[in-house]
Amino acid sequence: MTDDHRSGISLRVNGVTHRLTVDNRTTLLDALREDLGRTGPKKGCDHGQCGACTVLLDGRRVVSCLTLAVAAEGAEVTTIEGVEHPLQAAFVAHDGFQCGFCTSGQICSAVGMLAEHAAGWPSAVTADVSPDTPPPTLDAAEVRERLSGNLCRCGAYPAIVRAVIEVAG
């Protein structure tokens, strides 16, 4: 590997700035887990299809497995370790998990999703996307659609949806 293939970057994670040198191939997920010890984001599929690696980048939910660490420099990264949100207690109260592997991604995704809804964003199941109609209530259909990027192989979806609706309500 030549110097061209590595980069010195600073990553701001949960309010703390870290300096590190990464192989440019390193994903944000691997940098968080392997270099910075933030193992909350999970590696499920590593192809952006399961959502287990979801983190917030400047407040927006993204999959960290398809984000290059070098491309995340300068952004504010929030992992589940940096989240303090009523969703966490709601997931416990509603038993919104079984094995727990997808949970950190589910919660980070739900945090981002609630912010998107609060900003008035429609979804694919919103009947009328016009900005002149009131935003849709977050019912089960809306929550399922908006969180469809997070898979749960234990099938805890009904409880996840109840937990999110309770917090959204």
Partner: peptide, 14 residues
Amino acid sequence: QAVLAGASGQLRNM
């Protein structure tokens, strides 16, 4: 509607 019908919330943000 077309954009919202594609991918997931996370991928659309990227």
